Amino acid sequence: MRPRAIARALRPGGRLAVLTVQPRPGTDIGSVFGAAATQLAGMEIGHASGPFADPDRISALLTVAGFTDIGIRHIEADGIWGRDIADTAEFVMGWGPVRSHRMLADFANDGQVRSAIAGALEPFATPGGVRLRGTAWLVTATTPLP
């Protein structure tokens, strides 16, 4: 994400809202990513990385980009991640860190990765879909008025 470009794209007084999902250990999402990590060399679950992983860094980036009224709040929420286990496993297989580590392995062990993810999803499957509880930072900010 490029905060300065976003600030320029918003009108004066425009509002920014970003939700950054954190696949932490001890969360439903963390357990699913942890299962994938057992099959993907170098994939770690336990700390988030990137510019929007740390609240102090988020605040500093947005401040430098000219945003004001910066708010950062930790939230936990349930979400439906797919219709069933197969649908959700396919989604997780294509999601950022999992796909990146699959590419590094030349997709050689996709069967094992998919199986590990599907197994981790079983406790969360309901008739209404696969429900996972996760954590995130809810980031809000405003561009200054002239």
Results as ranks from 00 to 15, higher is better:
residue 44 E to H: 04
residue 44 E to Q: 13
residue 45 I to Y: 04
residue 46 G to S: 07
residue 46 G to K: 02
residue 47 H to T: 11
residue 47 H to R: 15
residue 48 A to R: 03
residue 49 S to R: 08
residue 49 S to H: 15
residue 50 G to N: 09
residue 51 P to D: 14
residue 51 P to I: 12
residue 51 P to R: 07
residue 52 F to Y: 15
residue 52 F to S: 10
residue 52 F to R: 03
residue 52 F to Q: 03
residue 53 A to Y: 08
residue 53 A to G: 14
residue 55 P to H: 01
residue 55 P to Y: 01
residue 55 P to E: 08
residue 58 I to L: 06
residue 58 I to K: 04
residue 58 I to W: 03
residue 58 I to V: 15
residue 59 S to R: 14
residue 59 S to Q: 14
residue 59 S to P: 00
residue 60 A to Q: 07
residue 61 L to P: 02
residue 62 L to V: 02
residue 63 T to Q: 01
residue 63 T to D: 07
residue 64 V to S: 06
residue 64 V to Q: 11
residue 64 V to C: 02
residue 65 A to E: 02
residue 65 A to P: 06
residue 67 F to D: 06
residue 67 F to A: 03
residue 68 T to F: 04
residue 69 D to S: 11
residue 69 D to I: 10
residue 70 I to R: 00
residue 71 G to I: 06
residue 71 G to N: 09
residue 71 G to S: 08
residue 72 I to R: 03
residue 73 R to I: 14
residue 73 R to T: 11
residue 73 R to Q: 13
residue 74 H to T: 10
residue 74 H to G: 12
residue 74 H to N: 13
residue 75 I to F: 03
residue 75 I to P: 12
residue 75 I to K: 13
residue 76 E to H: 09
residue 76 E to F: 07
residue 76 E to R: 12
residue 77 A to M: 13
residue 78 D to M: 11
residue 79 G to T: 06
residue 80 I to C: 12
residue 80 I to D: 12
residue 80 I to L: 14
residue 80 I to Y: 11
residue 82 G to F: 08
residue 82 G to H: 06
residue 83 R to N: 05
residue 84 D to C: 05
residue 85 I to P: 00
residue 85 I to Y: 12
residue 85 I to E: 05
residue 85 I to F: 05
residue 86 A to S: 14
residue 86 A to Y: 02
residue 87 D to Y: 05
residue 87 D to C: 05
residue 88 T to N: 09
residue 89 A to W: 12
residue 89 A to E: 05
residue 89 A to D: 00
residue 89 A to V: 07
residue 90 E to F: 00
residue 90 E to D: 15
residue 91 F to I: 05
residue 91 F to Q: 00
residue 91 F to C: 01
residue 93 M to F: 00
residue 94 G to L: 09
residue 94 G to N: 10
residue 95 W to D: 00
residue 95 W to R: 11
residue 95 W to P: 01
residue 96 G to S: 15
residue 97 P to T: 13
residue 97 P to D: 06
residue 97 P to Q: 00
residue 97 P to H: 04
residue 99 R to D: 04
residue 99 R to E: 10
residue 100 S to D: 13
residue 100 S to V: 08
residue 102 R to G: 03
residue 102 R to F: 07
residue 102 R to Y: 04
residue 102 R to K: 11
residue 104 L to I: 03
residue 105 A to Q: 11
residue 105 A to P: 07
residue 105 A to G: 11
residue 107 F to N: 10
residue 108 A to T: 11
